[in-house]
Every structure is written in C-alpha cells, then in structure tokens.
Design a protein around this nucleic acid. Structure first.
Length: 194
DNA sequence: CCCTAGATTTACT
DNA sequence: GTAAATCTAGGGC
C-alpha cells in the first residue's frame, strides 16, 4: 500500500500551472499524511483557488512573514491560522505569470486511518471528520510546524494520484469571503455514484 | 497604538 | 441563530 502511494506522488510540474487549473486538477487526488508510520489519507473533494491578483487572497497586498510560502516553490504547503485557533492548508500552485498562488483544500473524503482521524478530532461522527478546511487539518494533524513543507517528496505529508477524474466538477463562489465574490473559484467533485 | 475583520468551528441560547 | 475561541494583517489616528 505504502509503496503504491509513494510511486504515484504528483510531481512538481503538476503545480506549475495556473492556480485555478491546478485547483480543478487536484479534485480526486489523494492527500496523504504519515504519523509514526501510520497512514492517514483522504480523497480531495473540494478546493478553492487564490491568486495574488485576487482581492480575496492573503497575498493581494504583497509578501509578508505569514504568506511568504505562497510566493515560493510550487508544490509546497502554505499553512495559516484563522481566528486564532484553526489551521488550514493551501498547496502552492502558480504559473510563471503570477507572483503567488495557492489552492485551499476545503474537504476530504476519508479513506485510510479513519480511527486516527476520529481520535485527532475527538469525535465519533464520520460525517464531520474532514468536511471543512480546519477540520481536515485537525484530522490529519496539520499544523504550522509543517509550514513550507514540500508535498512532492515521500515524507510525512504529500499528494498522490487518487481516483478516476471522470467525475464532474461544480464551480461556485468561494466560501466565507466578502471580496471578489464574482469569481467562481470554489470547485467541488460531483461523484458519479451520487 | 487601537480597532476591526477575517479563506472557521463549536457550543450555546 | 448567535457568540465565543483569540492570532494576524491592515487601516486609521
């Protein structure tokens, strides 16, 4: 199992495309976290794109200590704290035309290590395990300690090939923002079996 | 320096 | 439905 995951890690150039394209391509891929040799993984089912030319992005006003990862290497992790207590994770993704960009992982479909996720979340409700950006970060023990981590190497956090991409994608306005609400940069996977 | 708002979640009333 | 948890960046004075 673990060897299969490692040989299918998405390469750097997967992320070196325009941010909204990568956001859509990431749907159906697998986010994998390894803690003490145990695998925790889920299928990415909802993403959002944020570019530096976008008023809703943390990077709109230029580089800061907090957001510098999104100006850096594509395929690395941008992790931020919101409302003081919650962590969320973006994957840095941008074409050369943009200074910064990232794809927010908003929801996962739990696949491996569900018992560990329940333990991390301190709940027993399968439905609420990873259906929000801060929830999945908690379930996978993603904190700012992992800030800037390269997700293209088989370390403790990476993204690998997932399920077939023959599913439909639904675009909507992004969640929880008040700026640039005309941009339909929230992407959800519509599973065939639903 | 003070104030406000925020890519959120949870526990209340 | 509303509030509380409390870190960070940005704007105003």
């Amino acid at each position: 199992m673990i060897d299969i995951l490692h040989t299918n890690i998405l390469p750097r150039n997967f992320y070196e495309c325009e941010t909204t394209i990568v956001a859509k391509k990431l749907l159906g891929k697998q986010l994998v976290r390894i803690i003490d040799g145990k695998i925790i993984a889920g299928i990415i089912i909802e993403t959002e794109a944020y570019r530096n030319d976008d008023p809703a992005s943390h990077t709109y006003n230029g580089i800061t200590e907090r957001n510098k990862a999104m100006f850096g290497t594509s395929g690395c992790a941008y992790i931020y704290t919101t409302h003081g207590i919650h962590s969320c994770i973006d994957i840095v993704a941008k074409s050369k035309r943009f200074k910064a960009g990232g794809v927010l992982i908003r929801a996962l479909d739990p696949l491996v290590g569900i018992e560990t996720m329940k333990k991390n979340r301190k709940i027993n409700n399968f439905q609420n395990l990873t259906n929000g950006p801060a929830k999945l970060a908690q379930a996978l023990q993603i904190t700012k300690k992992l800030y800037g981590m390269d997700l293209t190497t088989p370390d403790i956090l990476f993204v690998s090939e997932g399920i077939s991409s023959k599913n439909k994608i639904h675009s909507s306005p992004r969640i929880g923002i008040s700026k640039a609400i005309d941009k339909l940069w929230n992407f959800k996977l519509i599973l065939n079996n639903k």
